[in-house]
């Protein structure tokens, strides 16, 4: 069984969205041991014992993290189907690259397909979230 199917249909982690099942669109991205990983291109058994975070777990229940707040503020999501995967990639990216410039953000984002937004608002949101997180820490 694919990891994405296991997370969705066995654990009911429905934030894991499946958009292509061949590792291109990025909607199914989750964090495994803190690294952003496509959950559609590996089997559930391969993740046995691993620490997994999906978009449900990026912030404590009832709250939004800095990136989620910036996405809301800048209208960085429309249908929201690609969003949970992007949020997971951003979590990994900003930990590694706390001071990104636009080019780096766009390169990171190029692993995700969003058909609604045209990406501009997502880039703005990520850059602002990074700045807020730097200020906060």
């Amino acid at each position: 069984m694919l990891l994405c199917d296991f997370l969705r249909h066995e654990l009911h982690a429905f934030a894991v969205h499946v958009g292509c099942e061949h590792g291109v669109c990025g909607a199914c991205t989750i964090l495994i041991e803190g690294r952003a990983v496509r959950s559609c291109t590996q089997y559930a058994a391969q993740a046995d014992g691993a620490d997994i975070v999906t978009a449900e777990g990026l912030a404590p229940p009832g709250t939004l993290n800095e990136v989620q707040r910036a996405f809301m503020k800048h209208h960085a999501l429309q249908c929201g189907f690609c969003t949970p995967g992007i949020l997971c990639s951003v979590a990994h990216f900003l930990r590694q690259t706390p001071e990104p410039d636009e080019r780096r953000v766009r390169e990171m984002l190029s692993g995700h397909i969003c058909r609604c937004t045209g990406y501009t608002s997502i880039v703005t949101a990520i850059l602002e979230a990074a700045a807020m997180m730097r200020k906060g820490s």
Partner: peptide
Amino acid sequence: EDEALLTGQ
């Protein structure tokens, strides 16, 4: 719409 979409709800 956003909060539910951002939190996987």
